[in-house]
């Protein structure tokens, strides 16, 4: 089928099999490799993207279901080449990752959380990322990163 996906602010015309997941469409159709496959059955959250600003699992959607919605991937929240957003920079500051495989999904989940809840408690951070598995970090430095990002965002006027 032919469809148009709005990814990171641009419309992308794609020709895909109907059975293609949003995850595969982003990676193989659009060529954005920052969205990673972890389990392809909706448990690990590695493939998380933002759909109209909300964190969702891209393996649990057909690409066709995303038509008419704004899809944001990790590439779309990176301000410019070599630049980092406040949330991304906070993950670097606390070393909220190791292998980097779950990281794009974690960062996007954190961005969605902080948009809804600028000053989350530890429990709220934990709940927000509880659908994103990380096998490296034990989550401690990820929670720290999100708390730091919240603090920084509150001090800045940058969205």
């Amino acid at each position: 089928m032919k469809l148009v996906l709005n990814v990171n602010g641009s419309d992308r015309m794609l020709e895909l099999e109907d059975r293609t997941s949003l995850l595969d469409a982003l990676r193989d159709g659009v060529g954005l490799k920052g969205t990673h496959a972890g389990c392809e059955h909706g448990v690990c959250g590695t493939c998380t993207v933002l759909l109209d600003g909300e964190a969702v699992r891209s393996c649990l959607m057909l690409a066709a279901q995303a038509e008419g919605h704004a899809v944001t991937t990790i590439e779309g929240v990176t301000p410019g080449p070599g630049e980092l957003s406040i949330v991304q920079d906070s993950f670097v500051e606390t070393h909220g990752m190791q292998c980097g495989y779950c990281t794009p999904g974690m960062v996007l989940t954190a961005i969605a959380l902080l948009r809804d809840n600028p000053a989350p408690t530890r429990d709220e951070i934990v709940e927000a990322i509880s659908g994103n598995l990380c096998r490296c970090t034990g989550y401690g430095q990820i929670v720290e990163a999100i708390a730091l990002a919240a603090e920084r965002l509150q001090r800045s006027n940058t969205p």
Partner: peptide, 16 residues
Amino acid sequence: RRVREDRRFVAGGGHF
């Protein structure tokens, strides 16, 4: 000190 690898991972720039 910041971990240098993190800068690429956090931007989705890892090469898996």
